[in-house]
């Protein structure tokens, strides 16, 4: 069964159709890239998948369960981790505490009024940070972290509830080329190892062509191509609206 299945997703804003009839599926362990020009509807699409936006039409299934229109926190509980284009972490907490928050929330222990967080078991959070090469930064406040490291913290948070699906909105935006390769290789490794389906948007075509198993191309809200990287790269329509002559 596909991890994520999307059918006929559509959304308009004030009469402008941002997304029209988008359908696709992601398999466990698959890296699927969503590309397209600015304003093509990528972010809108993403926000409908994790519940930040309610679609006008269409259905979203996660492992066969209909999750259309559920609130983001419900979608997360069902197994969808997410990273944001502009990193969103808790700046007043340390790296470790950031990850611990996700774990505590997963265990439904965030209502606690008595036992201090510092006195709680942090081994699982430390293990997760070690897996992402962030063990040494665990005690640093997130507010002063370098951008590339913040992206890793976000990934650690997103992985904390053992998600079936990872949504990554421009995971490497603002990173140096070497860091991009390292982060995507790490993501791909974890995805395969745990059978996580990954859907990501990306502007860096080198990253896309190097790491995506499959590519979807969105233009003016509609899918204009999908398939293996080589086929998409050769598609004349994709070259015209998006890739240009350079790639």
């Amino acid at each position: 069964m596909a991890t994520l299945e999307v059918e006929g997703l559509a959304k308009s804003f004030g009469g402008v159709q941002a997304v029209r009839g988008v359908s696709f599926a992601v398999a466990p362990g698959e890296m699927l890239a969503l590309i397209g020009p600015n304003g093509a509807g990528k972010s809108t699409c993403f926000n409908m998948l994790n519940g930040q936006l309610r679609p006008d039409a269409g259905r979203v299934w996660l492992r066969g369960q209909d999750i259309t229109g559920l609130a983001p926190r419900r979608v997360w509980r069902l197994g969808v981790g997410r990273t944001f284009q502009i990193t969103a972490t808790f700046g007043s907490m340390t790296v470790l505490e950031n990850v611990q928050m996700a774990l505590l929330s997963h265990q439904r222990r965030l209502g606690g009024l008595w036992t201090p967080v510092r006195a709680m078991d942090c081994a699982p959070a430390e293990a997760l940070l070690a897996r992402l090469g962030m063990a040494e930064q665990a005690e640093r406040p997130c507010g002063i972290l370098a951008y590339g490291d913040l992206k890793r913290v976000e990934l650690a948070i997103a992985l904390a509830n053992d998600p079936a699906l990872l949504l990554m909105d421009e995971p490497t935006a603002g990173m140096a080329p070497q860091e991009r390769v390292a982060l995507m290789a790490l993501t791909a490794g974890i995805a395969r190892e745990r059978g996580i389906a990954v859907l990501f948007t990306e502007h860096d075509m080198d990253v896309v062509f190097a790491h995506a198993d499959r590519i979807l191309v969105l233009d003016r809200g509609a899918l204009i191509a999908q398939g293996a990287p080589a086929a998409v790269r050769a598609d004349p329509r994709v070259r015209e609206v998006y890739l240009g002559a350079g790639h």
């Binding site: 994790n50 930040q52 609130a71 983001p72 926190r73 997360w76 509980r77 997410r82 944001f84 969103a88 972490t89 808790f90 700046g91 007043s92 907490m93 928050m101 996700a102 929330s105 997963h106 965030l110 948070i157 904390a160 509830n161």
Partner: peptide, 12 residues
């Protein structure tokens, strides 16, 4: 307070 987006995305 720190991030409404992130807290919602981890079930808070």
């Amino acid at each position: 307070r720190d991030s409404a987006l992130r807290s919602e995305a981890i079930g808070i």
